Simulated assay, not measured.
Amino acid sequence: MSLIHYKIVQHDGGWAYKLGDVFSEPYRSHAAAMAAARRVAAEQRVPGETRYIQYQSEDGVWHTELAASTDRPQADVLE
Rank of each mutant, 00 (worst) to 15 (best):
W15N: 03
E25P: 10
W15K: 05
Q74G: 10
A75F: 05
S2M: 04
S57G: 11
Y17M: 00
R39H: 12
Y27L: 04
G14H: 08
V9R: 09
D76G: 09
E58M: 03
G48H: 04
R38G: 10
Q10M: 06
T70W: 05
E58T: 04
D12R: 06
A31P: 02
H11F: 14
T50N: 10
Y17C: 01
S24P: 03
F23H: 12
M34Q: 13
E25V: 15
R72N: 14
A75R: 09
S29P: 03
R28G: 13
L78C: 06
P26A: 12
A35N: 12
L78Q: 11
R45I: 01
A37R: 11
A32R: 12
A33I: 05
A67F: 14
A35D: 15
Y6Q: 03
V77M: 02
G13N: 08
S69M: 14
E25H: 15
A16C: 11
K7M: 00
H5L: 03
A37Q: 12
Q44M: 14
A31M: 07
G20N: 06
P47Q: 06
A37C: 07
E65G: 02
A32Y: 05
G14M: 07
A68K: 07
A67K: 14
Q54F: 05
R28A: 12
R51I: 01
A35R: 13
S24T: 02
Q10W: 06
A36R: 14
S2P: 15
E49H: 04
P26I: 01
D21T: 12
Y6S: 03
I53V: 15
L3K: 12
D71P: 07
L19Q: 09
A35P: 10
R51P: 03
P73R: 04
R45L: 08
A41V: 02
P26C: 00
V22G: 01
Q56M: 03
